[in-house]
Write a protein that binds this DNA or RNA. Structure first.
Lengths: 111, 111
DNA sequence: ACTATATTTCGATATATGTCGAACATTCGA
DNA sequence: TCGAATGTTCGACATATATCGAAATATAGT
């Protein structure tokens, strides 16, 4: 059992699960908006272009979400686990970026 | 609180949650494949065109899923709850169809 | 009326999820 | 070296989810 199709289904199901929480979805959209402004779906409209182009740090992504830092961290870990985003330490801050390949899969799935 | 944007986010999060279970995703894809063959994403390849065009009954959607009827029913109820599908009794069987508007939202979201 | 088919509802159960707060880790600057 | 800033990890807890099996419901055919 578990052929290629099943693997793909599970990968997409994982993507959808990661985006199934409103707070996580907001963080992801925020990241899409600042990483790839050309894709801007239902962008948050909060801001465009952070200092370091193409990414946002953990704290930024938590802005306006009304959840504590440990929960933010937990959600980002989940987005990373399924491969929707990548992270990279930069001094005190940790930069987050969209994984372009994952976004492409998402974009192409029902299209 | 809870502006329009938040409402939209929650609607999409609900869509994603409904598609976050592999079995439910398979059922949905199966339905897309037979309701709107032109959209066929990662279609199941099991069959095309059921007798009554444009829909599949509950039993059909459960084929090959290895879960009992009550669980199938539960999953379909969830897909219906969020508005991804519509149902209609037809004799003993119950026909399921994709809700085209919901599919469009999905298709347009990251595009 | 009886039976078979198709599906739903209900109750149980095990596991997953979202969230918090406290404690820890890392890096930068004074 | 100390302290502030930025995140993460861990443990707890309440709620949600996926699944099953048994019982109920609806429809059709004999």
């Amino acid at each position: 059992m578990s052929n290629i199709r099943d693997k793909q289904i599970e990968e997409m199901a994982d993507f959808f699960k990661a985006l199934s929480n409103p707070n996580r979805l907001k963080m992801f959209l925020e990241l899409v908006a600042c990483c790839m402004p050309e894709c801007v779906p239902a962008a948050r409209g909060i801001e465009t272009k952070t200092e370091t182009e193409g990414c946002a740090c953990v704290g930024d992504l938590g802005k306006g979400l009304d959840i504590v830092p440990s929960t933010i961290s937990h959600h980002l870990k989940e987005l990373r686990r399924v491969g929707l985003i990548k992270i990279q330490r930069k001094g005190q801050k940790i930069e987050c970026r969209i994984n372009p390949e994952a976004l492409e899969l998402l974009q192409g799935y029902f299209a």
